[in-house]
Amino acid sequence: MSALIRFSEIEKSFVRQNSGRIEPVLRSFDLDIEEGELVALVGPSGVGKTTLLHIVAGLQRPDSGRIDTGPNGASARVGMVFQQPRLLDWRTVRANVDLASKAAGRGTARTVGLLTQIGLRDYVDAYPAALSGGQRQRVAIARAFSIEPEILLLDEPFSALDELTARRLRILMQDMWLKAPPTGLLVTHNMLEAAFLADKIVVLGGKPARTIATIAIDLPRPRDPEEPELFAVHRRIMALLSH
């Protein structure tokens, strides 16, 4: 299979606000993500994980280098789940999802089914302010899947939730993913989450960032969050990052 997301020779620097010093974050960074594959990026804070995600999303531009997003290029359908739900609080749950799916040309026929599947059938016409944090994030997940994404970007999607809610939503994410697997990139600080969801974990480190290790997770799906192999992966990544 060919790569659907390909970073090649990506360079990105930031100018420090207080000192004016230029700090390279990414230099000659390469990474291929196969079609239908979910890659997790892990590593210390500030290593450039979110920058990579934002480059795919078109929210940041690399200083140089290329980012390819498959045969449809820039018009590939990209769904994203952020750390915060980022819903329009003044629109109903249904309208929030409809807005994204209509913009992607997918129509609104699937919205209610999707919200039912995600456990929010009773809240279709509610405003997001009436929902709990976990429910709001469910809406954000429904919105991302409503466009039938070719590429799905997950920016620490469960890190603002309590552990029990986060675990439920990870399982939900796995179910949704398995129905029609998009190509995905997950940024997380939670190694267990990375091991549970991803096909491949890319461990980043250093400044500018380089790939310290690539760990393939060859466990069959659906996975169980209690599988001992996941904890083994967790220990391995922690060992790599503690050096």
Binding site: V78, G79, F82, R86, W90, L99, A100, A103, R143, L153
Partner: peptide, 24 residues
């Protein structure tokens, strides 16, 4: 600005952004 980013990623049209984000 977080909502504006969201709208960018989900490719909302200028009209949608105006009606659903800017005016509200």
């Amino acid at each position: 600005s977080e909502i504006v980013e969201m709208a960018h990623v989900f490719r909302l049209s200028t009209r949608d952004k105006l009606i659903h984000i800017w005016i509200p």
